[in-house]
Design a protein around this nucleic acid. Structure first.
Lengths: 199, 199, 199, 199
DNA sequence: TATGAATGAGGGTTCATTCAT
DNA sequence: GATGAATGAACCCTCATTCAT
């Protein structure tokens, strides 16, 4: 009697829920957004939603993974031989204004949640790790080429650089009149000057 | 005889509540921490707590202001003639380990909240502004002395530098095995190399 | 297969809540009756009750409308050609004792609430208006027939007469030993003598 | 050590509280008005208020008595030889508009409360009784003079007439555009025609 | 007299989740 | 697969009242 379920359609529904969840979480916070909110946003009944995710926490976890994957897609598209700074700020250079940066504010929710939710933390670590491995490779290549200060430990350097990128969405919140392009230029220049070998 | 109002004791109670709130918010999040939780932490009944603060939101707002003031105390203790990098990382250098950085994670909650709560945003802006004004002054002094790249706009540069500092507590969350001192050293060096006039 | 929405069952639940609410409000007052009380009376959890009504206020408003409709059913069953006094006291003559009048005491709650709650006031006005229109018609017909004093303004007369009917449940409260039938007879006679054209 | 308390000042404070309570109850209802509200209105701390009244219920009871005494003062000022209708509507004729009737709306609260609070009911009965005794005397005198229908039982007639007066504040609530003077004239005429002996 | 600190039960309401259909 | 009825614990907040000063 049990009908064979269509895996593609199943996956599509899950994506719809995760997209709705991202929107709601962005506006109301991870704890402020309710399941019924997400249901409305996804045009779905709560009973049905629980068919796809076992709990709200499972939605948060899945959404975190999904979001970080998409966020890092720009970076991961690069190769090890590319310049570290270019790789790192590639996401930033794909945007045109602070408005486009706004959806990244969900990372504040995620860092706050990561501090107390082990699963979320693990997902952040795992996703960051992929980026870190790429950056470490570009740093090593840069050091080999003499473009990057040879005294830097690639492990630590890559981590600090990543935190710098995650910090960018803070700028319009602490200084609402900051110019987007100027700020982006400064961040990029900061990274470049930092990496350059001492004269 | 009517009992005299004791403003000191009143203020002490408010501080006690704010400290309890900070702890709870840090562990459970701004929305995850409940009033009854804060009451237990502050050894106080809910009715009494509302004698001091009109709402949970008022507690969040007051706690934000209080926390940022204390966080920036190290920075604001400096004078305009001090070196920008030294001023900026002074808070970081007053700590000894990632464990001591942990209470700063509340800033993730605050940035998330600032994105949707106007009062919190205004308080973050106002508190950051004080720091920014000092940094701008140190940058200008540095430029006058020739220590700081003259092409930098002090307004934007100070903002980007502050965001960099706020990002530090992310490091142990995305790379749990990072060494505290190494990371701190890298951040400090990054700022110094960035500010130095091009050769 | 998705379960069909059953509007009848939904409506039945709402009626059950309104009936429970009327009982509770009658005994404890509009503000004295709590949602949890009404839930117990209606054998329903609070979460579920809020599935049917958005707020306690919405329950009060719906209950007011429901109650006034049922209260005026007797009156509205009459036709324009009927005698005004007969129409007006028809509700009263359907009862047998002060005990049966007791459920009308909810009108005291409603008048008190109407004085400060615009929605309740509007509902009372709207429901009274239906009765008033009928009474106005019977008065005009009576004046045409010469049964009713031609000098009376039907608008004002009908309103004063309605207030008189609403006042009846006060009688056992201010004079607990009043005889029900005697009082009812006096009210009816008062109306008849009042309406009769001057000799 | 105990200072002799000044009974006049003590009574003045109680009156101040009762006046504040009347205002609050009128606006927010007996249960909707809080002690702290009344304290603010009376410029008094809760601890002090409880020095004068043992409980909120005691305030309600005392306020009921106070209010009804003042409300009936007009009526009780008359003598037994006065015309019943004139006595009854004397309060109404001391007012100029519906606005002045508004403070009488507290009677709706009181009737609602009387239905469930024995003390309040007793006070309403006792206060009404005084008025009733006077009306009964005027009715008997009228019957003796031949001005009043001899078939009426003065006990019941007086009670019904009093309920009619209490009903007047309902009029602007159920028909907001009613003219005050016209309504008052109709009420007065209704009573006169009712009492007059049949031709 | 007079204050305002302090309580804790209970107010209306929302929530994540389960279940019958 | 899909619905919305149903739960009850927990949410923020207010209340009448008491107590130390």
């Amino acid at each position: 009697m049990a009908r064979k379920l269509n895996p593609e359609q199943h996956e599509a529904k899950k994506q719809k829920i995760l997209a709705a969840a991202h929107n709601c979480f962005l506006v109301h916070g991870l704890q402020g957004a309710s399941i019924s909110m997400i249901c409305k946003e996804a045009s779905m009944s709560p009973g049905h939603l629980y068919h796809y995710f076992a709990s709200k926490d499972a939605i948060i976890v899945a959404m975190t993974d999904e979001y970080l994957k998409s966020l890092h897609a720009n970076i991961n598209a690069h190769s090890e031989s590319d310049d570290t700074a270019t790789v790192l700020v590639s996401e930033l250079w794909s945007m045109k204004s602070w408005t486009e940066v706004e959806h990244c504010r969900i990372t504040f929710e995620l860092f706050a949640e990561a501090a107390r939710n082990e699963k979320v933390r693990e997902i952040m670590i795992a996703n960051t790790d992929k980026v870190r491995q790429l950056l470490i490779a570009t740093l090593r290549a840069g050091q080999a080429r003499g473009d990057v200060d040879a005294s830097f430990d690639p492990e630590h350097t890559s981590t600090v650089l990543i935190s710098l990128i995650y910090a960018a969405p803070m700028i319009p919140l602490i200084a609402p009149h900051s110019n987007f392009e100027t700020s982006r230029g400064l961040i990029t220049m900061m990274i470049r000057k930092f990496l350059k070998p001492a004269a």
